[in-house]
């Protein structure tokens, strides 16, 4: 994504090379801070939200990132992700807010799913909406990308949500040129997606180029796993439901996305470093969310969750 609108001869000078996707994301971050009172960055510990943190650093340097991070912890996160999160926050001196899905379950506000494909994915929404209300956040910045999924392909960069966090997909504001209209009515908030136009490969290439640190589960490692529906699942933790006849075997695997352990399948991989991960993504014939069981529930799974306020 590097385009130089300058003469080749000038390359020897100290001339900035334009990276249009990166500059677009930085522009969006700055609009958020200028247009909203209380923005927050939704941080999952995944590569996309880690990339957002780097872009936010770039947008405001030499000042600190001027908003907190919010992590909705399902309690089913990979332990590596949580460790990584805490280290990153400490290193950059950021404010981190954590809200737990477990608290809502304990309070009887939501009921946990049971059975083979049980996941806390849907339950996150409730906790997120509670947190938005508790802190009065008016802009929630997230790492969703349009290339991930069909419903997301129709998402705006500034996406207005009502009191209930609902997405009115048929009545979205047109976004023309670079202009972002962040004006909202009382009770509404905006979801902001600075890397809307990045593809999975763009994110990985950026992580490689910028040498951004990411959680270890993105790289190949040996893990106790079992097979179901042709997908590889971690057998390391009790939150992943496993039937008795589903045999545990050690495999060399890595994860392409960092969702909940209960709904994120692994892929066989020998990619031990970032360069080989990028290489692997280039050659992959399965989409990133292909290993996410939460999207496979129905053709409209993502759209339905989004209408209800899911990220």
């Amino acid at each position: 994504m590097w385009i130089a609108f300058i003469n080749e001869e000038e390359m020897t000078e100290n001339v900035l090379q334009t990276n249009i996707l990166e500059s677009e994301a930085i522009y969006i971050f700055r609009e958020v801070v200028a247009q909203f009172e209380k923005p927050v960055l939704l941080f999952s510990g995944g590569k996309d939200s880690i990339t957002l943190v780097r872009l936010a650093q770039k947008a405001f340097f030499p000042a600190k990132i001027p908003f907190p991070l919010l992590h909705i912890d399902t309690g089913h996160n990979f332990p590596e992700t949580i460790e990584f999160r805490d280290r990153l926050v400490q290193k950059l001196g950021l404010e981190l807010i954590v809200r737990n899905v477990q608290d809502n379950i304990d309070a009887g506000k939501v009921t946990e799913e049971t059975g083979k494909y049980a996941s806390r994915n849907m339950l996150q929404t409730e906790t997120l909406l509670d947190a938005i209300e508790e802190f009065g956040f008016d802009a929630c910045i997230g790492g969703a990308r349009r290339d991930e999924e069909k419903a997301r392909a129709k998402e705006r960069i500034f996406s207005v949500r009502d009191d209930f966090g609902q997405w009115d997909e048929k009545n979205q504001r047109p976004e023309v040129f670079d202009m972002l209209n962040g004006k909202i009515n009382l009770g509404q908030n905006v979801r902001v997606f600075p890397i809307s136009n990045w593809t999975e490969l763009d994110v990985w290439s950026y992580i490689e180029k910028e040498q951004i640190e990411i959680p270890s589960i993105y790289f190949a490692h040996t893990r106790a796993t079992f097979l179901r529906d042709g997908l590889i699942w971690s057998a390391d933790d009790e939150v992943v439901y496993r039937e008795e006849d589903e045999k545990i075997e050690e495999r060399v695997i890595r994860f392409r996305t960092v969702g909940d352990m209960s709904c994120t399948a692994a892929v066989l991989s020998n990619a031990y470093d970032i360069a080989s991960v990028v290489q692997e993504i280039r050659q992959s014939t399965i989409s990133e969310r292909g290993a996410r069981i939460d999207d496979k529930r129905s053709e409209a799974a993502m759209e339905k969750r989004k209408q209800q306020g899911y990220f």
């Binding site: 609108f5 300058i6 100290n14 001339v15 900035l16 700055r30 340097f61 030499p62």
Partner: peptide, 17 residues
């Protein structure tokens, strides 16, 4: 002209500076 923590002599259109 800053881009992140680096200084440049010159920048072209399309860059966030």
């Amino acid at each position: 002209i800053y881009f992140y923590d680096q200084k440049f002599e010159k920048a072209g259109r399309g860059s966030s500076l």
